[in-house]
């Protein structure tokens, strides 16, 4: 295993964590947009309460992906930024408007029109952001991005497969968010989000089937990876089992266990994408080895990441223990 492979693994792991944490925050925004029924206001309030303390920390996983990419695989970073300029700018606008609007809404006067407008900006950008993120991923996997010195065709990502993966990303994030919110809600509100999780799970199934079918024609290398490698079958079985389990648990109203299954399912989906396009960063021109920075940089980066992780994970534990823990936070610090 080379430093490049390890760092490729770091990028994938950070993307999985971004999907599970940051993705769910975007998904919360989708449920803000789709809030309906007699408990519309309560649904929105729960979304706000759930993501308020953690969304900024969750967002940093994406920054980590960007930083590791340009440090360890600079040729890939520049190729991606040139070839996918348009969807990346759109993703960026979504990220900026989502974060800013969420904060503005929280600090506007409650109930006035400006606050409602920021709510709409928040939920609309939360919906579009994942679509563009998924589109970027789909375009990277498609094999249609050819890296040329004189720039790239700007609209090559507007194709059925990348757009299908865009919808897949949005539905995955909505599914995750609904299962998380079902755990955090109580009573009738819990049932609202439990039913939404079932619906989003069905959407995930449809989008995954669509993406898979399109990949056979539009992303042959990734399809090959998904279908014909030694690990392919056990991997699909595991992902499918997690999905079925999540469904069954949701229907059985066991939301906490369902959340666990959903996490495993989404992590396996993202990991499966990464594994199936290994060793390519951009199919078919850029590989991990081909885009690698000098070994000295990659080794130094691995050391820095290891040192950072030692500080990061305990801090994340405290954050989630404080805001998502079951009992009041009394382990580290007893209140007066």
């Amino acid at each position: 295993m080379t430093p490049a492979d390890l760092l490729g693994g770091v990028v994938l792991a950070a993307l999985i964590l971004y999907a599970l944490l940051g993705g769910a925050d975007f998904g919360g925004g989708i449920w803000d947009l789709l809030a309906s029924g007699p408990r519309k206001a309560e649904q929105r309030a729960l979304v706000e309460r759930a993501i308020g303390p953690i969304w900024e920390a969750n967002h940093v996983w994406l920054i980590l992906v960007v930083v590791v990419l340009f440090t360890a695989f600079p040729a890939a970073f520049s190729a991606i930024c040139i070839a996918l300029f348009v969807p990346l700018v759109l993703l960026l606008l979504g990220i900026v408007l989502r974060g800013a609007a969420f904060t503005f809404r929280a600090y506007e006067r409650p109930g006035d029109r400006a606050q409602a407008r920021w709510g709409l900006v928040f939920s609309a950008s939360s919906t579009l952001g994942p679509v563009f993120l998924g589109t970027v991923v789909g375009a990277l996997a498609s094999g249609r991005l050819r890296v040329a010195a004189q720039g790239a065709e700007p609209w090559v990502w507007v194709a059925p497969f990348p757009l299908a993966t865009g919808l897949l990303a949005a539905s995955l994030f909505a599914f995750l968010a609904a299962t998380y919110l079902a755990v955090e809600a109580e009573g009738a509100l819990r049932d609202d989000f439990r039913r939404r999780a079932v619906a989003a799970g069905a959407a995930v199934f449809l989008c995954a089937a669509l993406s898979g079918a399109l990949s056979a024609r539009e992303a042959p290398i990734v399809f090959e990876g998904l279908a014909r490698r030694a690990w392919s079958l056990p991997f699909h079985v595991a992902t499918g089992a997690a999905a079925v389990l999540a469904f069954a648990l949701l229907l059985a109203r066991r939301v906490r266990a369902a959340r666990g299954a959903a996490v495993v399912q989404v992590a396996l989906v993202v990991a499966g994408w990464g594994a199936s396009q290994y060793p390519y960063l951009v199919v078919p021109d850029v590989t991990l080895a081909g885009a690698s920075a000098p070994r000295a940089t990659q080794v130094a980066l691995l050391v820095a990441l290891a040192a950072g992780a030692v500080l990061l994970f305990p801090a994340l534990y405290v954050l989630f223990r404080v805001f998502k823990g079951e009992r009041p936070f009394s382990v580290v610090d007893r209140g007066r």
Partner: peptide, 21 residues
Amino acid sequence: MDFAGPIIGLPFSLEGFAFFA
């Protein structure tokens, strides 16, 4: 970035952890 990323990526990565904190 293609030129400088590998050379100055290290402080940017450490900045990433500071941003996390």
